[in-house]
Design a protein around this nucleic acid. Structure first.
Lengths: 168, 168
DNA sequence: CTGATTGCAAATGCTTTGCACGCCA
DNA sequence: TGGCGTGCAAAGCATTTGCAATCAG
């Protein structure tokens, strides 16, 4: 459990003011719910979490708030290779991070790496384009599982009954 | 205009045989349509192209054939940051390519770069995961446009009435 | 007061599916 | 002949939107 970074509230207020929007209790509950954890989520998962707060906020408002936050660049839509859209609330802390997905257990890890910048520079020189943003999804297999034949995440995922990645 | 690589047909036949499936004229028309160009496409764009062949293949069969080809790993779903799914028929030629999207005109360029392999090695050492696949989308601005105030792609895109990227 | 925001339900848009018929092997 | 593949229309599903009521500033 994590408390919401005050910088989020600040930036959101700035956005709201700039756009001539208003403050509402429903929106505040949803924003609080999003940024009180560092978990990735889908719209539906967020709606479930919001519902449990008994704040009365509706599904439509959840969707509208997500759009608002994405527009304000406080929340990012990320590509995890899933069918449904997934959102990531951690870009204020780590603006340049990307995602690694374990093909064995489905666990998502965030990473930052200087090779991404090197790649950007290289493309700039070779292709005549200057990168402004990148979205990298890396699917990888767990070394520990291959070597030791077991991996704590996989065991945990099975115990929790999570849907494991499709096998190839 | 490009002719379809015979290797595609071969691999598709192998997949069909292995799965106990059958050859049909509708499916052949759709496969031919996909691999006769190196263009990325959405299901709906493909359906339009197939319709013009007057082969009588239906929209449902277009969707079913796309699924079949993705499963056979002859076609890849790619992340261009669009709302609708986009498919790329060029992975047999260049299995490790990724995509750069011009934020000015929307043009999509394919690239391969050794830094991606370096990134993979690095993650392997640092995080204990061995990458098996990656999907990289880089958004970049056109240097020529910034320097010369004009870019042939942008002019072309405007003439053709293409929808330009949303401005930020 | 003004108009942004909300909840609800209906609408939307892409994709999948059930079914009966047809066709490949 | 068996059962895979097809077209059609209906269903599914996530997301968006119209509307009237409500509420913030």
């Amino acid at each position: 459990m994590r408390y919401m970074d005050p910088a989020i509230q600040e930036r959101l207020n700035a956005h709201i003011k700039k756009k001539g929007l208003r403050n509402t209790p429903q929106r505040n509950v949803i924003v609080e719910e999003i940024f009180s954890k560092d978990e990735h989520f889908t719209a539906d998962e967020l709606w479930e979490r919001v519902r449990k707060t008994n704040s009365g906020a509706s599904r439509a408002t959840v969707y509208r708030t997500i759009s608002l936050l994405v527009e304000a660049r406080l929340l990012h839509e990320i590509d995890l290779g899933e069918e449904v859209k997934t959102y990531d609330p951690n870009f204020l802390d780590r603006p340049a991070h990307n995602h690694l997905i374990c093909v064995d257990c489905g666990k998502v890890l965030e990473f930052e790496d200087t090779h991404v910048e090197l790649l950007n520079d290289c493309l700039s020189k070779r292709m005549g384009y200057t990168p402004v943003a990148q979205a990298i999804r890396i699917e990888a297999s767990c070394d520990q599982l291959r070597i030791k034949k077991s991996c704590p995440n996989l065991i945990k995922a099975r115990v929790e009954g999570k849907r494991l990645p499709r096998q190839r």
